[in-house]
Design a protein around this nucleic acid. Structure first.
Length: 439
RNA sequence: GCGGCCAUAGCUCAGUUGGUUAGAGCACAAGAUUGUGAUUCUUGGGGUCGCGGGUUCGAAUCCCGUUGGCCGCCCCA
């Protein structure tokens, strides 16, 4: 039994797990590139104040934070948003628009690990800066869907729930609620799906019980599942702000429909998302069976760049976590079995032949072929077994008899046919085999 | 931070009312087989039974604590 264990919630990636991780990263990165997003990275360790400024002092309880040797209060990053706001904010005027950035990075949160939630995890983050209209949301939600769909998941496997904090504010304002009351109600809405009426307990304690007719109207808005229902419920309120917002909604849903994504998105005002820095559209992706945590989440945060010291810059972004994504792929049988195959296996007779083989092995590797050989002398039978297990298509046989004749024997491991080639033509023979076999 | 369940080889597990030196399959390695493959056979390495304490003549087994894991609550940027 190992004396040391990894810290709780931190994952170790043995080669098989690492291959799965790479598979996820590869498709995310490839998809983001096709959407024209540019990749960036930033420090893992940041000033603690960056997160306190963004999220409030309470956030420290959820962070891996400590004082460094220089007396600085620091924290391992729990998310990318504040960092990318700083990066973009610092050079906002010099960056070509639209600013479409993405990253794949590891994050750390000091929380109790559970299914789908670890203390260290990876996220794909994508953000668009400088675009205030719903065109940015269309582009981002399109990217979000494609980042999940590219693994083979369909509209039967997942969907994106779309909501809007602005409309909630307009609606509750029209019902006569103060801003503080509105925040309390949004907190209850966030929990309503899971807890039912008990979700309003915290609101009742602070602001007193809701009038029954107010509660009915809130629950009615929560039940809105389409643009038509939305327009109907808001018809009685009116006002320019509201009309403009409905126009944004039409544009957003129209754009997503035109991309062919109508089956992947649903209007659902039950999504408001926890902390209060979101300023407009918010959205979350879930598995259709509802068995897992959210796969991804995001929204618009127009005030954050300025709050963190940059210029006024509208922004919208989302993040996909690797843990839930991986669980979903496993569940649906979409995680391929990864085998690292070898192209060529060198079978080596003994010490003298080893020296001869090394020259060809090195040259083939430099030429881009994956070449394996036994590190220590072994019986030929063992070596052929190892060659078969390695997945190699060719074996090069460096035996005493062959070298005496100035040849190397080449064995096609799939049909066990063999032929000899002069030693100085080994590279060309291997190259011919693989270029011919690729046709 | 709170509660429930769990912990024996790298993995999956067995281990009788507490009783000799804790087992099996898989995996890994060596040999049978010193120049030609997936089978087969033989053998081997690997465990302070998560850790610490207690009860007992004797603890993997019973009791307490602790650490870790899974699940739920709080939280979820």
């Amino acid at each position: 039994m190992a004396q040391f264990q990894s810290l709780p919630g931190f994952r170790e990636f043995y080669p098989e797990a690492f291959a799965r991780r790479n598979h996820i990263f590869r498709l995310w990165r490839q998809t983001a590139n096709t959407f024209g997003f540019q990749e960036y990275d930033a420090p893992v360790l940041e000033p603690l104040e960056l997160y306190k400024t963004k999220s409030g002092d309470e956030i420290e309880a959820q962070l891996f934070s400590f004082t460094d040797k220089g007396g600085r209060e620091v924290a391992l990053r729990p998310e990318m948003t504040p960092t990318v706001c700083r990066l973009v904010g610092a050079k906002a005027n010099a960056l070509k628009r639209p600013i479409k950035w993405f990253s794949i990075a590891e994050f750390y949160r000091y929380e109790r690990a559970q299914k789908g939630r670890e203390r260290a995890f990876f996220q794909f983050n994508a953000d668009i800066f400088g675009e205030p209209g719903p065109e940015a949301e269309i582009e981002l939600i399109g990217l979000l869907v494609q980042c999940i769909r590219s693994f083979g998941l369909t509209a039967q496997d997942f969907y994106v729930r779309l909501s809007d904090r602005n409309l909630w504010f307009y609606y509750l304002e029209a019902l006569g609620f103060t801003e503080a009351q509105t925040r309390g109600i949004l907190g209850a809405i966030d929990k309503y799906e899971k807890m039912g009426d008990d979700a309003f307990n915290a609101y009742t304690e602070t602001h007193g019980a809701l009038a029954p007719e107010s509660k009915d109207k809130i629950l009615a808005f929560l039940g809105v599942k389409s643009l038509a229902a939305l327009e109907q419920i808001l018809a009685s309120i009116g006002g320019e702000k509201l009309a403009a917002r409905l126009l944004d909604w039409r544009k957003l849903l129209g754009g997503l429909e035109a991309m062919g994504l109508a089956d992947f998105v649903e209007v659902d005002f039950g999504v408001v998302r926890g902390l209060a820095y979101y300023t407009g559209f918010v959205f979350e992706a879930f598995d259709r069976k509802g068995e897992l945590r959210a796969i991804a989440g995001g929204g618009r945060y127009n005030d954050l760049v300025a709050k963190l010291g940059g210029p006024d810059l509208p922004a919208v972004g989302f993040a996909i976590g690797d843990v839930t994504m991986g669980l979903l792929l496993e569940q649906r049988g979409l995680m391929p079995a990864f085998v690292q195959t070898t192209d060529v296996y060198a079978v080596i007779g003994g010490e003298a032949e080893r020296a001869a083989a090394f020259g060809d092995i090195f040259a083939l590797r430099a030429g881009g072929y994956r070449v394996e050989y036994p590190l220590k002398d072994a019986a030929f039978g063992k070596q052929f077994k190892a060659a078969a297990e390695s997945g190699a298509k060719l074996a090069l046989i460096y035996g005493t008899e062959e070298l005496a004749k100035g040849v190397v024997k080449i064995r096609d491991l799939s049909d066990r046919s063999e032929h000899e080639v002069p030693r100085d033509q080994v590279f060309a023979a291997v190259r011919d085999f693989f270029s011919g076999g690729a046709e």
